[in-house]
Amino acid sequence: MIIQVINRSLVGLTLVAFLFSTIHAYGKNTSLDKAKKAYENLQYDKVTPLLKRALKAVESVNEEIEIYELFALVHATYARKDAARDAFIEVLKRAENYRLSEDVSPKIREVFAEAKNVYDGLPEKDKKLPPPGAESTSSHQHAKNDAKHVATTQQEQSPPPTKNANSEQEFLQPQEQISLQEEPSFYQRWWFWTGLGVVLGGVATIYFLQSYQQGLPEHDYAVRLQ
């Protein structure tokens, strides 16, 4: 009986944890998390579409910084120096004191140095983002524009494969551009899993409550077994 009570408590806790995780997912920029994971797993072709989506749901300047930083790293990986530089400039606009970590490759460091030079040469008014009071609207709009800008830059400025370009770049670039146009499947949408979770969670809760209230079946005498 004690084990059964413990089991039921675990079921309750599991359901609560599930609901909290679903609710918690609303408050997070999940696209950014996925983009980070894709980058860590070297799935570079998935990073840019996820970052585009993350920019649409951006909620803080810190998130914007992370997004543009990843944009810059991916562009630099694909040897799109101009796009990488622009992304780094967006980072610097949001965090003037931003510095690359020690373990970053010289190729990326070179692009960042170029971006820093361009940023330092910008007029003061271009270095500033809209004031914090206008962040929720204008910054969001700005982010959207930047997303378009970066995506356009990416498509327009992707250098055609040259004779000297290595085979990896020739292979990866078209693949990434195709990924940009892909729509996520229904099972990758948050509403699908949230809906499924609510339905299954509801069924499990009803089943749990019913079995809890069921009580003993009718009988004349009872024996408890070990």
């Binding site: 079921v11 599991t14 944890a17 599930f18 995780s21 099972y187 079995s211």
Partner: peptide, 26 residues
């Protein structure tokens, strides 16, 4: 939480519900 993790959590909950049910012999 990834969808795979959600499926796992649901499966675990179903398993626990199953194990947590009372059994009777009449």
């Amino acid at each position: 939480m990834l969808w795979r993790q959600k499926v796992f959590v649901l499966w675990l909950a179903a398993l626990l519900v199953h194990c947590g049910s009372d059994s009777y012999i009449i």
